[in-house]
Amino acid sequence: MATIEVKNLSKVYGSGETKVTALDSVNLIIEQGQFVAVMGPSGCGKSTLLHLIGGLDRPTGGSVFIEGSDISKMSDNTLTELRRRKMGFVFQFFNLIPVLDAIENTALPLILDGIKPDIARTKASEWLSRNKLDGRGNHRPDELSGGQQQRVAISRAMVSDPVIILADEPTGNLDSRSSDEIAVALRKIVTDWKRTVLMVTHDPRIAAYADRIIFLKDGKVVDDTLLNGSNGENAKRLKEKVESL
């Protein structure tokens, strides 16, 4: 069973003359433990695809299956539950809570979910250590570098043990060194913890860390490439592809 399966997925906004087809009969199968980057020009439908897979929006046609369940047919409450249990979201900014330290920030989703604080703290510490933040657990966000804060954010996304991590331009605002740190952390989630990462990015250098790149244009998949070279070779290939599309 695929982690994500998308069948004839379409999303149309508006109607009549103002009708915009954001996604046009897209089919995709994404297996567990795959790091997938979605690229394409502005307005190509990449964000719409991420929203539909993340259960943040409803398709106008077709279906999204998460571990075999059709989320397009789920009630709001069931979908919310699935999103909370199975999906983690990583944003551009970390939005960590300034008065909470790294452990408390990471443990917050569990505590809000009713997990006992000491259990939540233990799980949070484990994820911080997996993201190379040993010894930083008691530091508040203002005592951490940008890259470290984003790794706290990644730990926070992982702490509820999601199957899928959705990352929406996760490196949009970081300098290139921190961007690489994030890409490495996402890579690690896939390689070491066999989770599935779906990332929207415009940056070929960051996309080069993925296993597979899906290119969208005008709401359709125009290219689907598996990467197997070194990061440098991948980035060069991707840059050429972005320019050709």
Binding site: T80, R84, F89, F91, Q92, F93, N95, L112, N173
Partner: peptide, 21 residues
């Protein structure tokens, strides 16, 4: 725009928080 994006992301986190409670 960074300000807008940061606030929007914070609002999204806030919605998650409301939803869970």
């Amino acid at each position: 725009m960074d300000k807008s994006a940061m606030h929007l992301e914070a609002d999204l986190r806030w919605l998650d928080m409301i939803e869970s409670r």
